[in-house]
Simulated scan of single mutants.
Amino acid sequence: MADKTDALPAETDIGRVALTVGDATETVEFYETVVGLSVHERQAARTVLGDGETPLLELHEDSGAPERSRSAAGLFHTAFRVPSRAALGDALERIDTEWQLSGVSDHLVSEALYCRDPEGNGVEIYRDRPREEWGETADGGVEMATKTLDRDGVRAAATGAKGAPEGTDVGHVHLEVTSLEAARAFYVDALGMNVRTTYDGALFLAAGDYHHHVGANVWNGRTDPASGRGLAWFELVFPNSRTVEAATDRLSTAGYEVTADGDGVSVTDGDDITLRLRS
Rank of each mutant, 00 (worst) to 15 (best):
T253N: 11
T97A: 15
V244R: 04
A112P: 08
N194A: 10
A206S: 15
G264F: 02
G15F: 09
E166F: 02
W233E: 11
V21A: 11
R229Y: 02
G201T: 04
T274D: 08
V48S: 09
A7G: 14
H40Y: 07
V28Y: 05
D269N: 08
R276Q: 10
N240L: 04
M144R: 01
L277E: 00
T78V: 15
G208R: 05
D200G: 07
A65F: 09
G208V: 08
L59C: 08
N240Y: 02
W134M: 05
S227F: 01
E166H: 13
D13T: 15
G52S: 09
L75G: 09
F30I: 07
S84P: 05
L180A: 08
D139E: 13
P66V: 11
Y187I: 06
A246K: 12
D261V: 09
T148W: 00
S110C: 02
G255M: 08
R229F: 00
H77F: 05
R70S: 15
D263E: 14
A206E: 05
L149R: 10
E181F: 07
T47N: 02
G262A: 05
D106T: 11
A87W: 07
G221Y: 05
E11F: 03
A202Q: 01
D169R: 14
T97I: 00
L275Q: 06
L205T: 06
L251C: 07
A86K: 10
L275P: 06
T243Q: 13
V34H: 00
S71P: 03
G135I: 05
T47F: 07
H60N: 06
A2R: 13
Q43A: 14
N240K: 10
Y199W: 13
G141R: 04
L49I: 12
S102H: 07
G153A: 13
T5H: 07
E93I: 00
H213E: 07
N194C: 09
D128V: 02
R242Q: 15
P83M: 13
A190N: 01
V17M: 05
G228P: 09
V244Y: 08
A86T: 13
R127G: 03
M1R: 06
D96K: 12
A226T: 00
R16N: 12
R116D: 14
V214M: 06
D23Q: 13
G103H: 07
G140Q: 00
A87F: 11
D3C: 02
V195T: 01
G140L: 02
T20D: 11
A45C: 03
P225T: 10
V48N: 03
R127A: 13
T274A: 14
G89N: 07
D128W: 06
E98C: 11
S63L: 11
E98V: 11
G50E: 02
S38G: 12
L88E: 04
R46W: 11
S71R: 14
R222W: 09
V104N: 10
G270I: 01
L92A: 15
W219S: 10
L37K: 05
G221Q: 08
R242P: 01
E61N: 10
A65T: 14
L203H: 03
M1D: 09
D96I: 04
D169T: 15
F238K: 01
T78Q: 11
M193G: 01
N240W: 01
